[in-house]
Design a protein around this nucleic acid. Structure first.
Lengths: 348, 348
DNA sequence: CTGTTAGCGCATTCAT
DNA sequence: ATGAATGCGCTAACAG
């Protein structure tokens, strides 16, 4: 159990001072040294199997090459690709990321943030941000750069990378409208999350743009972006005296839950009710009838947010807080059909 | 941008020495101090918003409360629940985990392992272990505890937590056999991975136990545990002069790929060919015809491996290398039916 | 061009 | 019961 080899070991071995060793190993300081020394040091470092202790280095430099990644829940299939996107940028730069899950709970978010701070993260990619984050003083105080991804704050405080929610919702509405639907309902996301309110706003916008009137009862708010909630909300919609012929859901999970509810009620999608989603989860191609949805570049927003974060870390004085909006893509599958004719014969 | 508050700040504020502050904040050393002092120190720590610098502490103690988590790819749905399981144990103990993805590449695994070492991890949970890991000297040398999960080494070297692969395969074989199948093929996992070879061995065992003879051509080896490979391997099977009536796949991804191939060929599952999987991925309930598969407790093996790792970290001298085998569960859905009658009429 | 010195924040041994 | 001193491994300012 030999302890890790340190600069001191290399110094002893080569006969030069530790600081010289340090310089010889540092690409930026290396050129102020003799080629010989640099060569010898690097060779023995190699031979001894030297690995820098980033903790010790970080203690001096205040840069740990560690970033925090805050997400609601890694088992939600939206996030792994974002994580990979972030890491694809960070890893070549020598960073590692510490991932923490909030489960959508603010108390967990706060404590996890403290944990990240204790571990000296150089910055944070926040994929679990709620609209109101008045408790963000900790970070502002410690001057830890933070970038939100997929969601954003209501205020302008933090740089963000989001998808073009408005465009996505508009396109889904258009597809439903052009298929002939006029009774279009919306299962909205939680009002505490930017994607919830922005997609709802976009839905109202689209309805207005297409001249479709939407009764209040056609908008039902979910508490989480999950299957079960989609099921629950769809039940409320289909219990109406005048149920919708189409459901535009705020994400795929809600949409799949809605389709399940329809199935439970003996209704078919798309024959009886058309449904659309948002995000284009990977599994969708396997799940009948094939959800028509908004495709987002999950890896891309991850990459963009990491790039943004790195630029914040490297230029802490830069006062800009960019807000990037990534383009979406329309993914057409089988969950939209023309509305059933009024007064249609019931099945059987 | 006030810097983080340190022990020194609290010392100055309270008028006691830093070492006293350190002791007052350490639950183990606290009782050698006056109650007053402890109280005052903790209060001002609270008031100043003190957060320990774990890097500095780790530099002294050689314990960073950081563990590494090596997985093939977080976008593979098998792993997020394992990750959550691991973290559910580690988080309450004050540990954070650094997750790295290997993409099944040994070179990446090695470099990622170095990265973890540089960040001073106290231990590693390895979910991407290959059978032959002759390059594990680094870890042995640095005496970093490591536990494998889901997979294990061929040799006895490392503690492990795996599922009861043999039992699972046996049960799938039994279901197929009892449905009347005698021409049962196996899409095996990669031979470089323990789950690949162990499930294959279990398949042969089961065939022998049930008195079913398996032609060599009925066993086809995949290169990765993925959908595309299942598709490719099933194509080989169905191209045989005497194709199987059932395919027992080494995991769900392979099974889903096989079902897709059947569909591409105009064949139905389960009417024409029965298929089984392994792992019981979350999405399966939504994908027709509903894959009959082996349910594994993903969170459970994550928890077990973390628990094992902690005990290794806390008792480094303990010479035991336990090998835990977690029970599996049979999950019956719709992908098994009796084999079509020999000389059946073709569809149409 | 390289050695010396100092200190990051903390835990711990040794005094007292 | 508490203060003083030391060093973990590294980088950076300062000398020379």
């Amino acid at each position: 159990m030999p302890r890790a080899v340190t600069l001191k070991d290399i110094a002893r071995e080569t006969g030069v001072h530790v600081s010289t060793v340090s310089r010889a190993l540092d690409p930026r300081a290396r050129d102020s040294l003799t080629v010989e020394v640099v060569k010898k040091v690097n060779e023995t470092a190699q031979r001894l199997g030297y690995r820098p202790n980033r903790l010790a280095a970080g203690l001096r430099t205040k840069r740990t090459r560690t970033v925090g990644l805050i997400i609601p829940d890694i088992t939600n299939p939206l996030f792994p690709p974002i994580v990979r996107g972030v890491e694809s940028i960070l890893e070549p730069l020598g960073y590692v990321s510490i991932i923490v899950n909030t489960d959508g709970r603010q108390d967990r978010e706060r404590s996890q943030m403290q944990v990240l701070l204790e571990h000296g993260v150089d910055g944070v990619v926040h994929a679990a941000m709620e609209r109101d984050a008045s408790h963000y003083t900790d970070l502002q105080d410690r001057n830890v750069p933070i970038v939100t991804v997929n969601r954003r704050l209501d205020v302008d405080g933090l740089p963000s990378v989001v998808n073009d929610d408005a465009e996505g919702i508009h396109e889904m509405f258009r597809l439903l409208y052009e298929a002939g639907h006029r009774r279009i309902a919306h299962i909205a996301g939680p009002p505490t999350i930017s994607t919830g309110v922005e997609r709802l706003a976009a839905f109202r916008e689209a309805a207005k743009a297409f001249g479709v009137s939407v009764p209040d009862a056609y908008i039902v708010e979910s508490e989480k972006f999950l299957f079960e909630e989609g099921h629950r909300c769809a039940a409320k919609l289909m219990a109406l005296a005048d149920p919708p012929t189409a459901i535009l859901a705020a994400n795929d999970g809600l949409a799949l839950g809605a389709i399940q509810l329809l199935r439970d009620r003996g209704l078919g999608c798309p024959e009886d009710v058309s449904v659309t989603g948002f995000n284009n989860s990977d599994v969708l191609s396997l799940v009948p009838p094939g959800l028509t949805t908004v495709g987002v570049d999950k890896t891309g927003i991850g990459k963009a947010s990491a790039t943004l974060l790195i630029s914040r870390i490297d230029n802490p004085e830069d006062p800009e807080t960019p807000h990037l909006v990534q383009p979406i893509e329309v993914v057409i599958r089988g969950s939209i059909a023309p509305p059933p004719r009024a007064g249609r014969q019931d099945p059987l």
